[in-house]
């Protein structure tokens, strides 16, 4: 971990509009995360955690923001193509619902980020799958895997391109405690070895011990 900022956002607001009714979700979020830092954001359901993560992951633009810098790039001024490129090169995602493509094998799912980049898939993918203890399941399709296995493959996919920033949205939310512990162990092991910045959102207090810093979110506001 160093003092260089991976995430530096200020005054981020977001509101959803449903049937002409505007529903504010984020109320001026400020957040700074250093490179290599492991931050957990905790908060109840509906407080805006996923919205914040989507904005950090450039998956949706905020309604309004004073600044939104990722790895030194001002995301507010980027074109759609540049945001896509930044997401591809900088960020890995782990989702609560795993979000593996059901049409291809687990191995191919893991290799997708590299495939999209046009990079060679073979060596890295197999090594990562082996390290995740999933070598025997690599040729199965997601529908043939347990929830825990799916999430470990999803984690491998998020990390295969060696992203500098890993965003995890309730990665253990759909797992039992044993599988959740296994996924978190794996996540921590990768963090220890590769030192990527991690922002993980959860409402599970037990995960807090893994983080360098824990933030709390309530009603669209963030606090230490």
């Amino acid at each position: 971990m160093n003092n260089e900022l991976m995430i530096d956002i200020q005054g981020v607001h977001h509101a959803y509009e449903h049937d002409r009714v505007i529903e504010p979700v984020l109320h001026g979020i400020d957040l700074r995360v250093r490179r290599g830092e492991f931050v957990i954001v905790m908060g109840p359901s509906g407080c805006g955690k996923t919205t914040l993560l989507n904005i950090l992951g450039l998956m949706m633009p905020p309604t309004r923001a004073e600044s939104l810098n990722l790895a030194g790039a001002n995301a507010l001024t980027l074109t759609e193509a540049d945001r896509t490129r930044l997401r591809r090169e900088l960020i890995g995602f782990v989702f609560q619902r795993f979000n593996l493509l059901p049409t291809v094998t687990a191995r191919r799912n893991v290799g997708l980020p590299l495939e999209i980049r046009g990079e060679n898939v073979d060596g890295q993918v197999d090594a990562l799958i082996k390290r995740a203890g999933l070598a025997n399941y690599a040729n199965k399709k997601p529908g043939q895997l347990s929830a825990g296995q799916q999430q470990r493959f999803a984690l491998a996919r998020a990390l295969v391109g060696r992203p500098a920033l890993l965003l995890a949205d309730e990665p253990t939310g759909n797992l039992d405690s044993a599988n959740a512990a296994e996924v978190m162990d794996l996540l921590c092991a990768f963090h220890r070895d590769w030192g990527q910045t991690i922002v993980l959102i959860t409402h599970n207090d037990n995960l807090a011990v893994a983080a360098d810093r824990v933030l709390h979110m309530r009603d669209g506001r963030l606090s230490e």
């Binding site: 896509t84 490129r85 995602f93 979000n99 059901p102 999209i116």
Partner: peptide, 16 residues
């Protein structure tokens, strides 16, 4: 639609 979201999250371009 979800799968398209996954591919976009992984960085697939519009052209892709």
């Amino acid at each position: 639609t979800r799968e398209i979201g996954i591919l976009k999250a992984l960085g697939m371009t519009r052209a892709g």
